[in-house]
Design a protein around this nucleic acid. Structure first.
Lengths: 126, 126
DNA sequence: TGTCAACCTAGACGAATGCCGAAGCAAGGG
DNA sequence: CCCTTGCTTCGGCATTCGTCTAGGTTGACA
């Protein structure tokens, strides 16, 4: 294997995921839970949650790593690792353009997760 | 001291949490990320995600542990531990009624999380 | 009162996670 | 051509997580 063939891999949770009936409306099957849990787990860290927000709310829908890294008190490799986690959870896409690497949010997946958490019928009941 | 005075404690993420402007609309501050990440982390496990769904979609809005436990190939204490995690993340409430303990979903919190993930404006962008 | 059932807590252990520094690849100048 | 800059991967610790068995604590019932 010539070492570094593929530029940047993604994973899972594309469009083959069953998903989507609101969590509170119908008991979700084990398969769906197993497929979606990694996405929530990826969001279950303050740094990644901020990264996700910075990427998703960026001007052109994409953010450069060179803009993301200095926003934290963490080393470059650590940020890279968190971005990799987000990528492997299917929450973002990465693309290298010239010198820099840009990350882009997969809004469809975010919507999927939002729909799952949405209360379906009875919104709130204080 | 008779040891077990308080019945069952909850934690965090009640109504003091800032929250809510969609993640993709505006970069969320570190405090908010820190406050919300534990909730996502709690959902980042297949078992807890299923538990959450079973509780949230239960008939009367509440589910008995005695109904939850046999749905998994896990020991009772393990399920109890997962329920505790959900409780400490502020996602569910627990109440002991006679012999059984009932768990109830905090739909308001779920809605909060859903709103955060909702794409605000541009739903999907293939 | 004694006994049983339901559920939680405590302690332990392997596996995964978060962090870093050092090293490796890619692109763009001198 | 080499050298610098940007980002990722690699190898290592310290910490956290998921699971179990064992041992309470509470409530119901004979």
């Amino acid at each position: 294997m010539p070492k570094q063939g593929t530029p940047l891999p993604h994973t899972v949770l594309g469009s083959d995921t069953p998903c989507c009936p609101p969590l509170a409306q119908q008991r979700i099957p084990a398969e769906v839970a197993t497929a979606l849990a990694p996405a929530f787990k990826a969001l279950g860290d303050p740094v990644r949650l901020q990264l996700m927000s910075m990427i998703a709310s960026a001007e052109n829908g994409e953010a450069c790593v060179c803009d993301l890294t200095p926003a934290f008190d963490l080393s470059g490799p650590t940020i890279s690792h968190h971005l990799r986690t987000l990528r492997e959870a299917g929450l973002v896409d990465a693309e290298r353009r010239g010198t820099w690497v840009y990350y882009r949010a997969r809004k469809a997946v975010l919507s999927q997760l939002a729909a799952l958490l949405a209360s379906g019928g009875g919104t709130t009941a204080p």
